[in-house]
């Protein structure tokens, strides 16, 4: 029996937002483990707390309570700069609306996270970018601006950008929400292929029931609690 190590462990994570005079309990004590190489979906309706959880996992938001470890690192004790460093090295993001920089071409968009990795040589950087773009099947579009690509192609660019730093964890926030059904399946196929090929842990949140059958693990969240 293969025992996967826990890449991420959340214990009793709570998060409350204040909206005007109203307190909204987005997360009410989340306990979660994600293992290396896992391909998981965070499923929940709108307002269930899945985006908040994803943001906390991506270290771009802090919980009010609880503990969060990544490997043997206590993430919540890190400074803002250390968290940035962690994100750059170990976490990749894929957003629903792609978040590509419109003035940069495909190659440059993928290159973005590597711009701050000063230890990489130019050659190494170039090779990584080309490899990432090739992995998502956009080798022929290197110098195209994002607005010349279809939605599916843009999301592939976002995937390439997330993978170019060789992260341990990829977080995708409803990556197929803006795509049609055929493209959605292609993107999921691609993510699964990359998961197998690169042994990267994938967690994407969705409320698209069609996708659920395709993932190894479904994590259901409702009213800020994993059920």
């Amino acid at each position: 029996m293969i025992v996967f190590m826990a890449l991420i462990e959340l214990k009793n994570i709570k998060k409350t937002y204040t909206l005007g005079e109203t307190q909204i309990q987005a997360l009410r004590g989340i306990n979660l483990q994600l293992h290396e190489g896992e391909f998981a979906a965070l499923i929940g309706t709108s307002g269930s707390g899945k985006s908040t959880l994803l943001h906390i996992l991506g270290t771009i938001d802090d919980p009010d309570e609880g503990s969060f470890t990544m490997g043997d690192q206590n993430v919540l004790s890190l400074s803002e700069n250390e968290k940035s460093y962690l994100r750059n090295k170990k976490i990749g993001f894929i957003f629903q609306s792609f978040h590509l920089v419109p003035v940069l071409n495909i190659y440059e968009n993928v290159e973005l996270p590597l711009l701050i990795q000063s230890h990489l040589s130019k050659k190494e950087r170039h090779e990584r970018i080309l490899q990432s773009i090739e992995n998502v099947g956009l080798k022929d579009f290197l110098h195209h601006p994002p607005n010349k690509l279809s939605g599916g192609q843009r999301q592939r660019v976002a995937i390439a950008r997330a993978l170019v730093t060789h992260p341990s964890l990829i977080l995708a926030d409803e990556p197929t929400a803006n795509l049609d059904s055929a493209t959605t399946h292609k993107i999921v196929d691609l993510l699964m292929e990359l998961n197998t090929m690169m042994k990267v842990t994938f967690l994407f949140c969705t409320h698209d029931e069609k996708l659920m059958s395709r993932v190894q693990r479904q994590i259901r969240i409702q009213d800020g609690v994993i059920i």
Binding site: G58, R87, N88, H99, I116
Partner: peptide, 16 residues
């Protein structure tokens, strides 16, 4: 601001 958020998510520090 959204792009700034993306940059931050990609690992850019406030200083950078």
């Amino acid at each position: 601001s959204k792009e700034i958020g993306t940059f931050r998510a990609l690992g850019f520090t406030n200083n950078q």
